[in-house]
Write a protein that binds this DNA or RNA. Sequence first.
DNA 1: CCACGATCCTGCTAGC
DNA 2: TGCTAGCAGGATCGTG
Length: 245
Amino acid sequence: MIPNSTPEQVEAAVAGRTVEGVERRGKYLLLGLSGDCWLVIHRKMSGNVTLSGPDAAAARHTHLVLWFDDETQLRFVDPRKFGRIYLFPARAALDAFLLGRLGPEPLDDLTAAGLRERLARRRARLKSLLLDQSFLAGIGNLYADEILWEARLHPARSAQSLTARERSRLLDATQRVLLGAILRRGTSVSDYVDANGERGQNQDFLQVYGREGLPCPRCGRPIIRQVIAQRGTWFCPGCQRVRRP
DNA sequence: CCACGATCCTGCTAGC
DNA sequence: TGCTAGCAGGATCGTG
């Protein structure tokens, strides 16, 4: 689970250091330690990062525990072991790693002109693009489906086929869906909990994801599920059409 | 450039 | 009740 280091090196690197800052870029959690050392965690499918007291029961599949002076523990628990822990000896090395993998932050760095230029260079289907972290950072399978529903766009539409109006809807939908999910402190469709062990609320507000057969909240047609871009994809065949009716 | 399959793992559940 | 096939919040690599 440590692609660019070893457990021994991680242990040696974190010992005695102070956490000076916590950042996020895409789906990567960045822990800035004293002396320009960076510990980076990606939760992938099933990982959770929590803070707990020293006496809290140890969950199965705990792979990393950071002990702080005040007895607090940061724990990384990941049953499927898809999660990854990286160690970078300097911010420059971390930035180089992220630069090659991540596109702009949808809520911070994305403009209408920026999105237009990025879409113009691509022919892929919208669903594939939204899942592509180098196109936009941080969007996963369920948010991709929710965004495309909100924007009334078919997941198999090709990027360069979008009209200016549709591009605008896509940008608005992306930001609205992500902001809504953040406001509700995340989507716990399964085991996700935040650092305090609290489940999010956004799973109770999903419009299409995981809702095959249920009526579209907008037009009432039953939601359908198809595999698109290798992933389960839920959308409304009534208001998300490849071509206008 | 793009689509797709395989791969890394464990746990849950729908269906028989 | 017990078994098993299928599916799951992700990303990478190789093939065509």
